[in-house]
């Protein structure tokens, strides 16, 4: 385009340095840690190569955490996309008060996850919680192995659906209204228009949102950590929580890093999967 000077690279230098110090170097360090048996208290550090990774698949607690994480991810993301789409279609049709409603919808997304987790913990309270009172039941939502995970999912759906809905609304806005009119004139019904026109045109954005949400759900930590702490009996313990516990409560930095590395690789695979679908769509 224009004059090239080596000076131009100075503009990206700060970012490169920061990225190197805070992401690349730690990642290499993590890999190195994950190949060691390392314990902070006993000051042990021994190279064990892939032992930590091999141990992962015989560790029942890890397998449960993996299963919990996948369940949480699949269920919460499906619910969020579906519900988000419904709200988006509705917001898109809204003529007055859209600004206010959008702002209100943003609030759950914007508050700290910790605050919403505490808020929901109180709503779920078995004795004095609003839910049991309104439903007229006495369920120990967070204390029962069956309900706990679903309660956490419910909270996550509440918190992130707005984000999904707003992104999808932005996507809907990009569809020219002539298209709806043309389809209407061609005699297409609402459902038909939605399936044959809206959904296909929305597909790229849905994929982007799915990518963000899947990754976020897969690495979930604070929501569940604060809400249930992984309990009862490990039924809500996700990979991130398990890794955190191993790292910072039992101080096994080697094995904990191996779990963290595993999460990193899963997230990498998930992104590659979505990005490849996205790229195929654009060709």
């Amino acid at each position: 385009m224009k004059k090239t000077g080596t000076g131009d690279y100075l503009f990206i230098l700060p970012s490169v340095v920061v990225f190197f110090v805070v992401t690349i170097y730690p990642l290499i360090y993590l890999l190195w840690l994950s190949l060691h048996r390392r314990h902070l208290i006993f000051d042990i550090s021994r190279f064990v190569f892939l032992d930590n990774f091999l141990f992962l698949f015989t560790d029942p607690r890890f397998l449960t955490a993996l299963k919990n994480t996948v369940y949480f991810t699949v269920v919460s993301v499906s619910l969020e996309i579906t519900l988000g789409l419904v709200i988006a279609l509705f917001l898109n049709n809204l003529t007055t008060g859209r600004g206010i409603v959008s702002a209100i919808v943003l609030v759950p997304w914007a508050v700290p996850t910790v605050v919403s987790a505490k808020m929901w913990e109180w709503l779920y309270n078995p004795d004095y919680g609003l839910f049991n009172y309104l439903l007229g039941v006495k369920v120990n939502w967070l204390g029962s192995p069956f309900w706990a995970m679903n309660a956490a999912i419910f909270m996550d759906v509440w918190k992130t659906t707005p984000f999904v809905a707003l992104l999808l609304t932005a996507g809907l806005k990009l569809i020219p209204s002539e298209l709806y009119h043309a389809a209407r004139i061609d005699g297409a019904g609402r459902w038909y228009i939605f399936r044959r026109i809206v959904l296909p045109l929305l597909k790229p954005i849905i994929l982007v949102v799915l990518l963000f949400r899947t990754i976020d759900a897969f690495r979930v930590f604070d929501a569940i950590y604060v809400l249930t702490g992984g309990g009862p009996a490990g039924t809500t313990e996700t990979l991130s929580i398990y890794a955190y516990r191993i790292l910072f409560q039992t101080l096994q930095f080697g094995y904990g890093s191996a779990i963290a590395m595993f999460i990193f690789m899963c997230v990498g695979l998930i992104s590659i999967f979505y990005v490849s679908i996205l790229q195929r769509g654009f060709r």
Binding site: K2, D8, Y29, L33, S240, Y244, G268
Partner: peptide, 30 residues
């Protein structure tokens, strides 16, 4: 500006946004 490797840098930037925090928390702690 006219710098090389823009696409690569942007791709890297995007991938950082997907880093699970748990993956860097232990080395960063150390």
């Amino acid at each position: 500006l006219n710098i090389r490797g823009k696409a690569l840098f942007l791709a890297f930037v995007l991938s950082v946004s997907m880093f699970p925090p748990i993956a860097t928390v232990s080395p960063l702690y150390l």
